[in-house]
């Protein structure tokens, strides 16, 4: 413990405690929670997909946007989460909604085991390393009978044990819970002293160590949290479609999509991934009838955004109107007198 500081500050101050964002989020969550009572199954399915992608995007952004580690192997955790859910509920008959969390845990365990090797790599090497991890799991599953090999697995038999009216809404509530949980977790984590340390790792590792931050520990914890959340989201995503195969699940297109939505929304902000996901689904729902042209349009949008709106949609709005719903920084406010 340091000595009692001898010199008193010549001014008084306090740290700003913003609550607007969490309140808006809590209200939105309450509204969304009753949505299954009147929404159609098709709409619920779409909402599930949106929420799963939101969780994945937050998790990728925590790793890349706040800690500075760009992963292009998130599909490893998506796939492990999804396979974790399918295998446990098919083999043990466990309620698939509960198995979502087991999927997340499975991804976290893989994260724990692979982190020591991955964090020996930096920058682009780290990115490729994560991709290799995903490929590794794809190949293993492709060659394992128990996991359905190349033809995949279906939840059809498991889902018959769930009453019809809860099949989609059950997934919806789990997804909603995890979305809200993820945003609050990331927000409060980043506002804590841990969050400050996370940002120092991104900005300058040598400086971070020189002010007492154990950078390996920080990277490790962030990676595990990201793996867990991504695993849960992967489980939700495939619980929603009820069918899984190693080609789609471990496809690098997942990571490409995450990079797309986070960069378009605004990397390194909590609002960014949220906006990016909504924007992506808006494009998809309006343009997907155009087939291949839709993919080209997405690419053009991505290029245009990077050229003209490098801070993403939320970065632009936040700067223009000077609003910040989930500020991760600490602002000192001077008190009068």
């Amino acid at each position: 413990m340091p000595d009692t500081p001898q010199v008193k500050s010549s001014f008084s101050w306090q740290i700003k405690k913003p609550i607007a964002g969490p309140i808006i989020l809590a209200l939105a969550a309450v509204f969304c929670a009753v949505f299954p009572l009147f929404g159609s199954t098709g709409t619920l399915r779409l909402m599930n997909e949106i929420m799963a992608l939101m969780i994945m995007a937050q998790a990728w952004n925590l790793l890349a946007g706040f800690t500075g580690f760009v992963s292009i192997g998130q599909q490893a955790f998506i796939g492990i989460g999804a396979y974790g859910l399918f295998v446990t509920s098919i083999e043990t008959g466990l309620n698939p909604f509960a198995a979502v969390f087991l999927g997340g845990l499975a991804a976290a365990v893989v994260g724990i085991l692979s982190a020591p090797a991955l964090f020996r790599l930096r920058g682009p090497y780290f990115a490729i390393g994560t991709w290799v991890l995903a490929e590794l799991f794809r190949i293993v599953i492709l060659n394992t009978q128990k996991f359905g090999s190349g033809s995949g697995l279906t939840l059809a038999r498991v889902i018959k044990t769930i009453p019809r009216e809860y099949r989609t809404s059950g997934t919806y509530w789990v997804a909603l819970f995890l979305t809200v949980f993820t945003i609050f977790l990331v927000y409060f984590l980043l506002r804590s002293r841990f969050g400050l340390a996370v940002r120092t790792v991104r900005d300058n590792e040598a400086s971070a160590e020189s002010v007492g931050v154990n950078i390996l520990r920080i990277k490790f914890i962030v990676f595990i949290i990201s793996a867990f959340l991504t695993g849960c989201a992967g489980a939700i995503s495939y619980l929603n479609t009820m069918f899984i195969n190693p080609y789609a699940t471990f496809s690098v297109e997942w990571s490409a999509l995450l990079i797309f939505v986070v960069i378009i929304g605004g990397i390194g902000t909590i609002e960014g991934p949220f906006i990016g996901v909504l924007f992506y689904f808006f494009l998809r729902e309006t343009l997907s009838d155009f087939g291949t042209w839709y993919i080209i349009a997405l690419g053009l949008v991505a290029i245009a955004m990077m050229l003209f709106v490098p801070n993403g949609l939320w970065g632009m709005v936040s700067k223009r109107f000077n609003i910040n719903l989930f500020p991760t920084g600490a602002t000192v406010v001077m008190k009068k007198g």
Partner: peptide
């Protein structure tokens, strides 16, 4: 080598948190 994405206060606060405990 400042933490360029952070404010002056945050730069010193992280040092007080982790260096000074």
């Amino acid at each position: 080598r400042p933490f360029h994405g952070m404010t002056i206060f945050e730069n010193a606060r992280v040092a007080a948190n982790f260096g000074a405990g």
